[in-house]
Design a protein around this nucleic acid. Sequence first.
DNA 1: CCTCTATATTGACACACATCGATGTCATGG
DNA 2: CCATGACATCGATGTGTGTCAATATAGAGG
Lengths: 115, 115
Amino acid sequence: MPVRELPLAPASTTSCCGIGVDGGLTREDAERSAALLKAVADPVRLRLLSAIRATDAGEACVCDLTDLVGLAQPTVSHHLKVLTEAGLLERERRGTWAWFRLVPSRLADVRGIFD
Amino acid sequence: MPVRELPLAPASTTSCCGIGVDGGLTREDAERSAALLKAVADPVRLRLLSAIRATDAGEACVCDLTDLVGLAQPTVSHHLKVLTEAGLLERERRGTWAWFRLVPSRLADVRGIFD
DNA sequence: CCTCTATATTGACACACATCGATGTCATGG
DNA sequence: CCATGACATCGATGTGTGTCAATATAGAGG
């Protein structure tokens, strides 16, 4: 799911002030980008991403993350689901544990929104 | 208001899985970053930023932007206030009109969260 | 001073969302 | 096959937020 950047499209036609603000994101692009940003615009989810990134192996399981953020396990599971559905995390079950890894290309998408 | 990036802090101590997820953002840093991201995680506000950026003069007034997004004037005014209070826009009154400009350094702060 | 136009503020409403307890699922070990 | 531990899902609840109509403010011009 590609995410287009804030475009530097040329301004064009008319308006009450004669400036022209037709350039810019389409509604669809804006909604796509906003959906991705919403996944990341939460302090708990930022800490989860940061904690996974700070890990030696580049991955962490839910029990570790639950301890870290100090919230109930269902809450952490919910946040991890949001991040995973946004494409920012990959999930892998190994035995009883679920391991989460960053998806660097998706993080690059977030950065690309503001390039 | 500085915004710290997702740190690559070294993992340290123990956990149930023996991985160690102590590294990462503090609660305070995460809340600061999330507050900034929330201001931007909205399709209408993304379009407003994009439209202002696409302008020849680098600024636009409310009437232009209201036409663009197709929402009621108070709604647009509200979104512009959110962006301004987040430090992403600067407001200047010239006569009857209110002009809004981007604050590039603040946009860089957003980008910096994911560096 | 009065009016007109552009913008901001307020109040209300609907909807989304973060959180948690309770419960369900699934794999492991006995 | 049953018990245990890790994780996911569900249902409920309180809080946050986007939207608009109504109203207020503020500057320009007569």
